[in-house]
Amino acid sequence: MSTLHTVNKSPFETRTLESCLAHCRPGDAVLMIEDGVYGALSGTALSDRVAAKAGAVKLYVLTPDIAARGLPEDRMIAGVTGVDYRGFVDLVAEHDRTQAWL
C-alpha cells in the first residue's frame, strides 16, 4: 500500500514540499510538478534535505515542467527521476492513492 504525492509549489515560497516529505512513508513516491520542480534542483538550500529522502522515497520530476522553466536535467538532484505525462499516469496507476499537496 503506497501513496503517490504530487507537489506543485516552489519549496522556496511554501513549505509544502518539506511537509510532504515529512509525511511520506517508505515506498511512497513524490512527483514534483509545475513550480514544485524547483525542489528537484541541486545546489540549493534545500537540496540536501530532499536528497536525504531519495531511497526510502522515490523522487520524480515532471520533465515538461523543467523544460518549460529552462532547467537543465543535469542540474537535478541525483536520485530524482524525470517522467513525462505518460510516466505521470503510470505513477498514478502504480500507487494505491494520490495525494495532491497544494
Partner: peptide, 18 residues
C-alpha cells in the same frame, strides 16, 4: 503525532488536499 498523521494518510482510499 506527525508519524501517526502519516499513517492515517496511508490508510485512506481517497485524500483531498486543501
Amino acid at each position: 503525532s506527525r508519524e501517526e498523521m502519516a499513517a492515517i494518510m496511508a490508510e485512506q482510499d481517497v485524500i483531498l488536499s486543501f
